[in-house]
């Protein structure tokens, strides 16, 4: 017989809450990139409005974590579940903020036709980043440190693309001053995606801490 049934239930619920938050964030990142590529102001504004819900959910789940700590006094692995849960939440919340940043960039580009070639890298970067979020959360649910490490390795690919986009956009701007504004916004967007990938890497590091109790730098 379990001696801590209510506690175990609360920990399970926490995991489900985090997954719920993660799927919203993943969707927000995807939608924000779509709104940018299509320069769709309506879609961009939906991402911005949707972030309020993510923020609210974040506070709600954080409150539950605080309650678990105050009432159940978790230790050892139990404590790591709650603490890593809170840190994963924080990383997800930051990702959602960057999705908002991308959506805002899309709104600033309203009315323009995006012509620069490096635009094509953005969906590719976004796909990688979304894959990292998904794998990060899978590794969390499955306590799979190999998956977490493999996911973190994808961050190098994201960084590589970012460096390439940077070079190419600088060239575009030098060749054609008319694209300076859109190039600058796109550069920002790539930077936001690169940051989102870093937050995903942080999640991978949290998973490794959760499982092993040791901190490992993967970034």
């Amino acid at each position: 017989m379990s001696t801590r049934a209510a506690f175990d239930k609360a920990l399970k619920e926490l995991q489900q809450d985090i997954l719920r938050m993660a799927s919203l964030v993943e969707q927000a990142v995807y939608d924000s990139v779509q709104s940018l590529v299509k320069v769709d102001v309506t879609e961009a504004s939906q991402v911005i409005i949707g972030d309020d819900m993510i923020d609210k959910l974040f506070l709600e789940i954080e409150e539950k974590c605080i309650k678990i700590i105050a009432t159940q006094q978790p230790i050892a692995r139990d404590l790591r579940i709650v603490i890593t849960g809170m840190k994963i939440l924080l990383n997800l919340e930051r990702m959602a903020d960057h999705a908002v940043d991308i959506a805002r960039s899309a709104m600033c580009l309203s009315g323009q036709t995006l012509t620069v070639k490096p635009l094509e890298y953005i969906p590719q970067m976004a796909r990688l980043t979304q894959q990292m979020i998904k794998d990060g959360l899978d590794s969390y649910v499955q306590s799979d440190i190999e998956k977490a490490s493999a996911m973190c390795a994808l961050d190098d690919d994201v960084d590589y693309i970012f460096a390439q986009v940077f070079r190419e956009l600088i060239n575009c701007m030098m060749e054609n001053p008319e694209v300076v504004m859109q190039s600058t916004y796109l550069l920002h967007v790539c930077r936001y995606l690169e940051r989102i990938a870093d937050h995903a890497t942080n999640i991978g590091e949290e998973v490794i801490y959760l499982v092993t109790g040791e901190h490992k730098e993967l970034n």
Partner: peptide, 19 residues
């Protein structure tokens, strides 16, 4: 002991899973 117990039995005891 209270953050990273090495033995599963220790973990189970301190986290209240048996005893």
């Amino acid at each position: 002991i209270f953050t990273r117990p090495k033995d599963q039995r220790t973990e189970d005891y301190i986290t209240g899973r048996f005893g």
